[in-house]
Design a protein around this nucleic acid. Sequence first.
DNA 1: ATAATAGTGTCTTTCAGACACTATTTT
DNA 2: AAAATAGTGTCTGAAAGACACTATTAT
Lengths: 276, 276
Amino acid sequence: MALTTAKGLRDQNGLTEEEFLAQYDPGDYERPSVTVDMLLIGPKKDLSGLRILLIKRGGHPYLNCWALPGGFVHPDETCYEAAKRELSEEAGVKDVFLEQVYTFSKPDRDPRTRVMSVAYIALTSKTVPVRGGDDALEAAWFDFEYTDSQIHIFNEDIGVDIVYELSTKRFKNGHIKYPNLTPTLKSKTRLAFDHVEIIIEAMKKIRKEIEYTDLPFSMAPVKFTLPDLQVIYELLLGHKLYKANFRIMVADRIEALGEKTKSIVGRRMSEVYMLK
Amino acid sequence: MALTTAKGLRDQNGLTEEEFLAQYDPGDYERPSVTVDMLLIGPKKDLSGLRILLIKRGGHPYLNCWALPGGFVHPDETCYEAAKRELSEEAGVKDVFLEQVYTFSKPDRDPRTRVMSVAYIALTSKTVPVRGGDDALEAAWFDFEYTDSQIHIFNEDIGVDIVYELSTKRFKNGHIKYPNLTPTLKSKTRLAFDHVEIIIEAMKKIRKEIEYTDLPFSMAPVKFTLPDLQVIYELLLGHKLYKANFRIMVADRIEALGEKTKSIVGRRMSEVYMLK
DNA sequence: ATAATAGTGTCTTTCAGACACTATTTT
DNA sequence: AAAATAGTGTCTGAAAGACACTATTAT
């Protein structure tokens, strides 16, 4: 382990750093478990909507409830690396955009023991089928509709339908106030733990970041057409865009490849682009 | 502890949730320690600059280095509550704006043991003097200058001067790229741990949020004049604003109280306002 | 041929940026 | 009276929003 202070410097107990580290007992403080949880979303193949990956819980607590994919952070990895590993293990997703959102730390958010969760946004260009039920782990893609007033997560094949209503409440921080979305369960089925709140926080971040980053490009294949990219923007933002204005907006970030393909959403040939 | 699933539901071992929780052993996973660290900043009394609170480390590692205030998250509190408590204990700061920024989790960021840190922005309207050196804890306010190319933290009374140069590097995330600031130490003294990176991440967030939140108001007293508020905006943003434009921008968020005071930065009477 | 949609032109509105001026207050 | 600064009016240009038109392609 690398030393951080001058070699000979001694503390109030007369120890050098090397001596201090050798005798240090990490058991002095009670430690929480730390997990990562991912909001993994991607477009449906025909770009008619978004999908979210959920994992069915095979054990207590929230037995049989659907939950965001995630898992414990190992001793030798960062949270980012843990999120990457879990996505690969649980969803078979490799090339993925990953960004930290928020750390959830209510002491009772997991009834087993103290568990903090570092939440991540994970965006993928395709929602490839996941194996289901071969081990304890059952994973599936759900249709995901997110509006200002509602979260709707459903999968008709499995017969699962989860609805949360969203209402705006104002909170105080210091002497300034700001609005926050509060979910209310409207269906029989619910999501496990505080995972609705993770979804809300992640979607808030996504919508904000779309304005000044290339984030929606991570939901498009490397080569894409503008009609398709526009639909991806619209899915993430939750509203329609004007074609001409959209093209002006992205113009200086893309380059034409001089090819044409049939776009997914339209029925005609259109120019193929890449992100610069 | 509240149950999360239907009372009788049994898992693959035939246990109800109640039975499961009773036998659950939390020792199965290796757990990190979790701390909170705060970027506590506020304006100098004459609004001529910003100040940041630092704590001198009295023990290994980084013995005698200055560090962001912070501490361990207790078993019964959220990270937010821990941050609030530590600010009150270490800096005597009560009414403060507090917002989570980012969770730092490199396995070797603390040489003692695995320590994750949840970073917070803390904004206060006055940098009240802190007691120094009465217990193991020595705290002091430092002048804080943050530009696109440099972080400068200094206190001439104590004789401490810390400089980091900032350069922009591009990183890849999935198949999109985005820029990030990387610090290089330019002074003899350094900050403890990865606390420079916390400062960079927090300032990035502050500058972004100024555009669409009331964040700078948390550095002003409840009643303020517009010349003073404008200077606070300029300190946080790092550049000058046009008076007329600034007033249009904040116009619909403030209300005049019908009083006048001498503004801090000017030498004339000016109208007193409050945040709506 | 017809319908759909890819792609572009352009008008309007809004807002940020910039400067100039008047009014008030301190020294 | 002079200097400084509080407070307001207004011009400009860039960008967002909105609509209309032409060109191309699938059926």
